[in-house]
């Protein structure tokens, strides 16, 4: 097979890209900018500025950032510990962190709901050792907790991968040139894992920003995120145009994240994927 013939093998995928990736996105644009009669309008876009939407967007951003930062703070030390274990079989690590995903995530979130319940396991334990029970359920904190739980593996794996790639020579060279552990951490390890950090941040921030199931389950309907607003406008209100214009806003957020990631990901093909 010469090169040209080999390229043709991507043909079916090209059809798929156009039909099921690009065309659907154009549909969102269409619904966001055209009304039922097919005439152009900016009306739906202006709905974005309504108090409910703005509140939902700000809350989504806040919770998304909080979840991302917590994930990063939890994942980075863990990645370092895992890396120090010097496990030869790196796929084992991937395996361990992917395994929970084989249990349906709604059920896992439900399990947390049972654990965090007013009379749940956590509070039973807390009260038995004489501490105040925590009423975290149905608060934004519970939603952040759920997001951290659900997306933590997406932060751990890219950071671990980029850390495993750092050659021992760099560390030794820095040591040799007089750097102590702290300097090595800030000047060598963090910069060299930056692409992993960025991938992790994007892979946690985007789904956290746009989730609606977690907030529905752990927020008890009291925490309204942009995802919930969109879901309602499609599944309950039949306000497809308004929903589409909000989706467009989400897409822009995502595109910005993608661009940032591309700038930092010099290898081009993504530490994004495990």
């Amino acid at each position: 097979m010469n090169k040209l013939k080999r390229q043709l093998l991507a043909g079916p995928y090209l059809v798929w890209i156009i039909g099921f990736i690009i065309l659907p996105l154009l549909m969102i644009l269409y619904y966001a900018f055209f009304d039922e009669n097919g005439s152009f309008t900016l009306e739906y876009l202006s709905h974005i500025a309504s108090p409910i939407n703005v509140h939902a967007m700000v809350l989504s951003l806040e919770l998304g950032v909080a979840a991302t930062v917590i994930c990063l703070l939890l994942a980075y030390p863990l990645a370092m510990i895992l890396n120090n274990l010097k496990i030869k079989n790196q796929s084992l690590i991937v395996f361990i962190f992917m395994l929970p995903m084989w249990m349906n995530f709604l059920l896992r979130i439900l399990a947390w709901k049972l654990l965090l319940n007013k009379n749940g396991v956590l509070n039973t334990v807390l009260m038995s050792i004489g501490l105040e029970p925590v009423m975290i359920l149905n608060t934004p904190a519970a939603v952040v907790f759920g997001m951290v739980y659900e997306y933590l593996p997406f932060m751990i794996l890219p950071i671990y991968n980029s850390m495993a790639r750092i050659k021992k020579d760099y560390i030794e060279a820095a040591h040799d040139l007089g750097a102590n552990e702290i300097t090595i951490f800030f000047k060598i390890i963090i910069p060299l894992t930056l692409s992993g950090i960025i991938s992790g941040v994007v892979m946690v921030f985007v789904p956290a920003l746009t989730s609606f199931a977690v907030s529905e389950l752990l927020g008890g309907g009291k925490v309204l995120l942009i995802g919930n607003v969109i879901e309602e406008s499609f599944m309950q209100g039949m306000q497809w145009n308004a929903g589409s214009s909000l989706s467009l806003v989400l897409m822009i957020f995502v595109m910005v994240s993608m661009t940032i990631m591309n700038i930092f990901d010099k290898d081009g093909e993504g530490t994004a994927v495990w």
Partner: peptide
């Protein structure tokens, strides 16, 4: 990388 909700809706 796109949000699942956007992919689904689109």
């Amino acid at each position: 990388l796109n949000a699942d909700i956007v992919t689904g809706i689109s």
